[in-house]
Design a protein around this nucleic acid. Sequence first.
DNA 1: TATTGTTATACTCTATAACTATA
DNA 2: TATAGTTATAGAGTATAACAATA
Lengths: 155, 155
Amino acid sequence: MKKSDQASFLPVVRELSRTYQAFEQFASYNIRRLGLTPPQFDVVTTLGNSQGMNCKELSDHTLITKGTLTGVLDRLEDKGIVVRSMQPNDRRSVFVALTPYGQELFSQAFPAHLDYMHNAFQQFGEQDLSGFCNELGRLRASFSQALEQQESEPA
Amino acid sequence: MKKSDQASFLPVVRELSRTYQAFEQFASYNIRRLGLTPPQFDVVTTLGNSQGMNCKELSDHTLITKGTLTGVLDRLEDKGIVVRSMQPNDRRSVFVALTPYGQELFSQAFPAHLDYMHNAFQQFGEQDLSGFCNELGRLRASFSQALEQQESEPA
DNA sequence: TATTGTTATACTCTATAACTATA
DNA sequence: TATAGTTATAGAGTATAACAATA
């Protein structure tokens, strides 16, 4: 019997995609009302929960690759939300932080977004939530591991 | 206490995003080797598991909106993978199906992709998998419902 | 030599809405 | 009037690689 004949994991894959799409739709419905795209919002919240960081760290946190990040930051800078500055200690590095306006946006929009997201979780208790986290974590670990295996193999 | 102060669902949201990203990376690593993008692959597998369908049905299955679908189909047609034809019964409708080459691609690539995906699920048993589906399904239902609520509210 | 970030290129997808041809 | 699909527009993210400045 070929492996593909017993693809009992297929429903999981389908369900994961559908669930993420539903989440993405729900979340971005609110995010776009702020005039932001999801990647932009991701950057703003990452910066908002820190004192600022360089592009490399920002890229690691958001999983946005450096080439793309330049464009995202450009657009956020145009909107006056973030500011770039040079670092004296390492002059290759660019320090990125929220502007005062960006901080105001963050401190207003982030709690509001949490309240919004809360609507989707009202029916779940602590136990449900930690159950979700566990299951998702198991899946994620497995995908990461499988990808690493692939990448380390000869093409 | 404000709702946002007790955001115990935040880890779930983060974990769902990370998990999906890990899945997406893992899956697309293989899909791109076929010279396809994930949306294109989605269309190919949807068509491959059917006798063909019109754009409306295809859009419903893949969740790709009609405007985007036109472009995706254009590129698949350029590659000789799908073919569009008119329907005599409803001349507004366009029937989309795999070409013989597209069918060959599908019948070779789809099982291969399942075998590839299988690598990420080896460690899970039937019970794990159905557990994942249940949890994901609960989440999805909740997101869908919450979005509907939002959309029905006065902006 | 390796790293940080920008630039360049070319493509792909997205959202939105106007448009056509049918029904 | 409503529906199916295309077209138009403008933007935004993606992958990739070359590049400049710095370490």
